[in-house]
Computed example of a mutant assay.
Amino acid sequence: MGGWNAKLTGALAALAIAASPPVFAGLAALAPAPAAATSLFGQSRYAALLMDASTGEVLYARQPDAERFPASITKVMTLYLVFERLAAGQLRLEDRVTMSARAAAQRPSKLGLKAGETLSVDEAIRALATKSANDVAVALAEHVGGSEANFARLMTHRAHALGMTRSRFVNPSGLPDARQVTTARDIATLSLAVIRDFPQYYGYFQQQQFVFQGRVMPNHNHLLRTMPGVDGIKTGFTNAAGFTLAASAVRDGRRLLAVVLGSPTRPGRDSNVEALLASGFRVLAARQAGERVQVADLLAEPADLNDALLSTLVEQGSADPAPRR
């Protein structure tokens, strides 16, 4: 694999950065660590976007407007509506949310409360942000919107108002439904809207674990624990969607947001997002130093990254457990 590793390193530099001639000598320093966006190029469902949150500049994009299933990233939209009502005083963190029979019957991941049991709005938010509990998502939607179907209509309406023109929601959880679609660009738009509009609530996505009735549930966003600067926001997985992740990180006062949809494995998703963020921060640092560096908006597949390497990378991660999250 030594030869392929060398080819991969070269491909990463070509993938991540398009530079003017004076900067070519510095490409090696700017290239991300191994396992970047190229490791997923062969996957038909793969879509990604990297954005500078302060300027809105798209630093990298791969099929950013292709329709994809959002899986549990859907819950970011659910929580956006909840945050709106909290900020408007129409909802309180101490309000009690009752688990309906419909909510209790949702498929995992779930908190497992029985019909008629309750939890606070604060606990419900934490359960969505960390455990990604589908039963709680439905109960919270019913509490806010009167019914799951009505809440889903509110989700779609609000999404379009935010500029998420290619998104449609039919449930608050992200459980499989062919009608529920989004794009990497729309998820980036939503994630930035949460950070911008509700900084007082964004911290929910930073919590490393949620403790409920004596149970400790770690956040599914592993980058919170493994990559310095990452402070949110949400993972997802279904068989139809693959592994999805929107993650935001801050370094030296600059915030980047990366979205990856359609990864075949969790490690592939996580390493891809990490590499995109690392590439973006290296480019920002180079620009700050006065170098003329530009990251390509849309990039073709590097010619020297072949199917054999892609198959190897996918195979190495295929044994990873795939809980629904």
Rank of each mutant, 00 (worst) to 15 (best):
Q90D: 15
A300H: 09
L192P: 01
S318T: 12
V314S: 09
D95H: 06
F237H: 15
S109E: 01
A127F: 13
V259D: 02
F243G: 01
R215E: 15
A105C: 06
R92G: 12
S173H: 07
G56I: 07
K75G: 00
S109C: 12
T55H: 09
R185D: 07
P172N: 10
A247R: 00
G10C: 02
A66I: 11
Q288I: 00
Q294R: 13
R324H: 11
T118E: 11
V250M: 11
F41A: 09
P321W: 05
L79V: 02
V260L: 06
G317V: 10
A286M: 05
A322M: 11
G2W: 14
A285Y: 00
D95S: 09
Y80F: 13
L162Q: 03
G56E: 05
M155H: 01
V314D: 10
N272Y: 01
S100P: 06
D252V: 07
Q208K: 15
R158A: 06
G26V: 00
A275G: 15
T183D: 03
Y202D: 09
T235V: 12
V121C: 05
L224E: 06
R107T: 11
P199V: 14
G232R: 07
G317W: 10
Q106K: 14
L111A: 11
L162A: 04
A11F: 01
R215N: 13
S279W: 00
D52L: 03
T226A: 14
R251D: 09
A101M: 07
F237G: 01
G203D: 14
R62V: 08
A105N: 09
R287S: 04
L224Q: 04
L245R: 01
R185I: 10
A139Y: 00
Y201T: 11
L313Y: 01
R254W: 01
D95L: 03
A161E: 15
A319M: 08
R85A: 07
R185G: 03
G174Q: 04
R185C: 07
L257Q: 06
A300K: 11
Y201G: 11
P323W: 05
V260C: 08
D186Q: 13
S100Y: 04
Q213Y: 09
G203I: 12
P21S: 06
V250T: 15
D297A: 12
D65M: 04
Y202A: 14
R45V: 06
D65Y: 10
A308F: 14
D270V: 08
A178Y: 11
V295W: 04
T312N: 10
A193H: 11
Q206I: 04
R269K: 14
L162M: 06
G214D: 05
N150H: 12
M1K: 14
A6T: 08
Q90M: 12
M77V: 05
S173L: 08
T189F: 04
V216F: 03
Q288L: 08
V273A: 05
Q288S: 13
G232Y: 03
A33I: 01
